[in-house]
Design a protein around this nucleic acid. Structure first.
Lengths: 79, 79
DNA sequence: CAACATTATACGATTTATCGTATAAAATCA
DNA sequence: TGATTTTATACGATAAATCGTATAATGTTG
């Protein structure tokens, strides 16, 4: 899943959290942040710090990786 | 390249920048930040905001992606 | 070595993320 | 529907990122 802005990140967090049947407060506790922050991040309301991004991803058992840029995938909602 | 902390990010930025024969100031201009900030980030001196991370990676033609966590690779420097 | 180029550091000012806490709003369920 | 759970929002306080600018330190090259 490629992340190009805060909204992408928020959507990914929400998606992965729901896949795991977790509540915001569960992620928050694992990542040692507030439930309110998870809400804000999922809604793309703020640009998290890298360490916060990493804590949240760790709570989801996910990693961040940097990769050569690829063209954007075809997005049917654009048509 | 997996990023698990600020230092990993900084090292990756420096590595990719040098691969491209670019100076810190070149990345800084492309990303609309200060040369001093690139230096700080490469040295892991600060936890950049996600939007800053994305601007810098864009200047390197790279993307951020989130992936399922894998066990750490074998690291011979630990032995 | 001497000039030049690049990177690192400093410092005060400003902006922003995050906190703690509380509550409103929305969703779920019995 | 009513109770309960979950998520969103508010607000002031604190900590931290980023800025502009300047300069020190280091590296490179002739």
């Amino acid at each position: 899943m490629t992340i190009r802005n805060n909204k992408d990140f928020g959507e990914s967090v929400r998606l992965e959290r729901l896949k795991r049947n977790m509540r915001q407060v569960d992620i928050a506790r694992k990542a040692s942040v507030r439930q309110a922050l998870i809400s804000e991040l999922e809604n793309g309301a703020t640009s998290a710090r890298l360490d916060t991004v990493l804590k949240v991803l760790a709570a989801l058992d996910m990693d961040l990786s940097i990769v050569p840029r690829r063209k954007a995938e075809f997005d049917p909602t654009e048509y």
